[in-house]
Amino acid sequence: MVTAADPGKTRSSVWLAAGQTAPARRRSEAPSGLDRERITGATVRLLDADGLARFSMRRLAAGLGVTAMSLYWYVDTKHDLLELALDHALGELPLPQTGAVDPAAPSGPAPDGWAGRLRALACGYRRLLAEHPWVAPLTAAYPNIGPHARAFDAALQRLLDATGLVGACRTGAHLAVSQFLHGCGGTARRAPEGDFGLALDVLIAGIEAQAVAARPGP
Score class of each variant (00 low, 15 high):
residue 53 A to K: 07
residue 197 G to W: 00
residue 212 V to D: 06
residue 12 S to H: 06
residue 95 L to Q: 11
residue 115 A to F: 01
residue 72 Y to N: 04
residue 172 G to S: 04
residue 15 W to D: 06
residue 74 Y to F: 15
residue 2 V to L: 12
residue 37 E to I: 11
residue 196 F to T: 09
residue 22 A to Y: 00
residue 51 G to M: 13
residue 213 A to V: 02
residue 198 L to F: 07
residue 182 H to R: 15
residue 213 A to R: 07
residue 9 K to V: 00
residue 23 P to E: 11
residue 133 P to K: 13
residue 181 L to I: 15
residue 122 A to E: 06
residue 71 L to P: 01
residue 126 R to C: 08
residue 213 A to S: 04
residue 141 A to D: 08
residue 90 L to H: 10
residue 73 W to V: 02
residue 38 R to W: 00
residue 20 Q to I: 04
residue 109 P to C: 06
residue 144 N to D: 14
residue 196 F to H: 15
residue 87 D to F: 07
residue 2 V to K: 07
residue 137 P to V: 08
residue 189 R to E: 07
residue 50 D to W: 00
residue 78 K to S: 12
residue 37 E to Q: 13
residue 214 A to E: 06
residue 126 R to Q: 13
residue 4 A to R: 05
residue 151 A to S: 15
residue 1 M to G: 14
residue 103 P to F: 10
residue 7 P to I: 05
residue 108 G to F: 06
residue 88 H to E: 15
residue 29 E to V: 07
residue 74 Y to N: 03
residue 90 L to A: 07
residue 167 G to W: 04
residue 188 A to W: 02
residue 194 G to A: 15
residue 4 A to C: 03
residue 203 L to A: 08
residue 17 A to L: 14
residue 131 E to N: 10
residue 5 A to S: 13
residue 102 D to V: 08
residue 164 G to L: 11
residue 77 T to D: 07
residue 178 S to Q: 11
residue 20 Q to K: 11
residue 61 A to L: 07
residue 108 G to R: 09
residue 39 I to D: 01
residue 26 R to K: 12
residue 162 A to Y: 01
residue 81 L to P: 00
residue 155 A to W: 07
residue 5 A to L: 01
residue 185 G to T: 09
residue 140 A to S: 07
residue 136 A to F: 05
residue 198 L to S: 05
residue 204 I to M: 04
residue 98 T to V: 11
residue 108 G to K: 10
residue 187 T to V: 15
residue 211 A to N: 03
residue 86 L to E: 10
residue 207 I to M: 09
residue 94 P to H: 10
residue 64 L to G: 03
residue 68 A to E: 14
residue 85 A to R: 10
residue 45 R to A: 15
residue 137 P to Q: 08
residue 85 A to H: 06
residue 29 E to W: 05
residue 81 L to Q: 04
residue 144 N to A: 15
residue 72 Y to D: 01
residue 49 A to D: 11
residue 216 P to E: 07
residue 22 A to P: 00
residue 164 G to I: 09
residue 184 C to T: 15
residue 36 R to G: 02
residue 206 G to A: 05
residue 42 A to R: 13
residue 131 E to W: 02
residue 194 G to M: 08
residue 186 G to S: 12
residue 94 P to A: 15
residue 97 Q to S: 15
residue 93 L to K: 14
residue 96 P to C: 14
